[in-house]
Nucleic acid binder design. Sequence first.
DNA 1: CTTTAAAATGTAATATTATAACATTTCATT
DNA 2: AATGAAATGTTATAATATTACATTTTAAAG
Lengths: 162, 162
Amino acid sequence: MTDKIDNKLVQGKHNHHRCIDHALQVAEQVCLKKKLRLTKIRRQVLQLICENHKAVGAYELLDLFREFDPNAKPVTIYRSLDFLMDIGLVHKIESQNAFIACLQAEKQHKSVILICGQCKNAFEIDATAVYENLFALSKQAQFEPQYLTLELHGLCVNCQKV
Amino acid sequence: MTDKIDNKLVQGKHNHHRCIDHALQVAEQVCLKKKLRLTKIRRQVLQLICENHKAVGAYELLDLFREFDPNAKPVTIYRSLDFLMDIGLVHKIESQNAFIACLQAEKQHKSVILICGQCKNAFEIDATAVYENLFALSKQAQFEPQYLTLELHGLCVNCQKV
DNA sequence: CTTTAAAATGTAATATTATAACATTTCATT
DNA sequence: AATGAAATGTTATAATATTACATTTTAAAG
C-alpha cells in the first residue's frame, strides 16, 4: 500500500489499514484461543465493519457484503454479527441499531461508546470506574447487575467545528 | 378501590394505584406548564404504560390500547410515545425497544434504568455522579457530550431468589 | 480413508419495529 | 363564525430482525 493511499485512509491521526489488519489479526487469535471458526463469511463481515469507524447498520453491511456474494441474505449478516458480538469483536450500538468493531477485543475492557451525532463515528474509551460505581449503586438497590448498555451521544472533535 | 384490590396491585412495597395517579397528575402539571395538550389518546397511552413497571413494547401497547379503540393503528401509539418522551414522561429502553413511564418526571434527573432480565420490571435510580464522570471523561477525549443511554441489565430482588 | 455428528451456510418466508405521506378533524384564538 | 396550527385518521411501506428447515462443510473418531 502506497503512502498516497495511506494518506487518504488516515482518519483522526491514525493509520487505518493497520487498524483493519490489527482487528483481523486479533480476531484470528481470539478464535484460535476459543477454538471457534473465523470462516470466510465472518472474516469478510468483520472486515467490512472495520472499513471505517462509523456505526453501520446490518442492511448497510448486507449491501457491502453483496460485492462478495450478490445473493447474500440478511440472515447471513445477522449470523455473523451474532458470532462476532458473542466473542466481543463487534459491539451493537443499541440506540442506533448499528454495529462497530471493537478495537480492544484482545484485552478485557469496560468501556463507554462515544457516538458522534453528526458523522456517526464511534469509538470506545475506558469506563471501568463507571461500571464499578454503577454496579455498586445497583447492589445497594438490591439489584444484581449483569451487563451495562452505555452509549454517550455528542459531537466528535471534527464535527464540533462545523 | 378496596384493600383487597390494593393488595393485589402492590408490587415491591409500593401502592400501585397511587403510583399511576401520581404519574397522570404529574403529566397534567407538566403539560400545563409547557402549554402542551395532554389529549385523551396521550393520557390513555401513558396510563397503559403505567399499568405496571415492566418495559412494554409499542405493539404490546397497541394491543392494550385497542380496548379503548379497536381500530387504533401503530402510528397512534408511536405519536403518543414521541410526545411523552419529548417531555420526559416516558423513557425508551433502547436495548429492548420498549418503553417505561418515568416516575420522577417532575424533577430534572439523571438516572440509570435497571432492567430485570427475568421479569422485565424496570426502574430508575439516580446516577448524577456517573453522568458527571462520563461527561468529564469524554471531554478529556475532546468529545462534546450531549446525552447518555444508560441501561443496566441484571436481576431484580424478586427474581434473584428463583 | 470413511463415517459421523455438529457446525455452518443456503433459502424462503415472515415477524417485529417504526415512519412517511397526505386527508380530515379538533381546538384555541381571533 | 373564521382561521390556522395541532392533532388525529388512514393507508402504505420502510427498516430491522428472526424462524424454520434443507443442504453443505468440517473436525474428529473409528
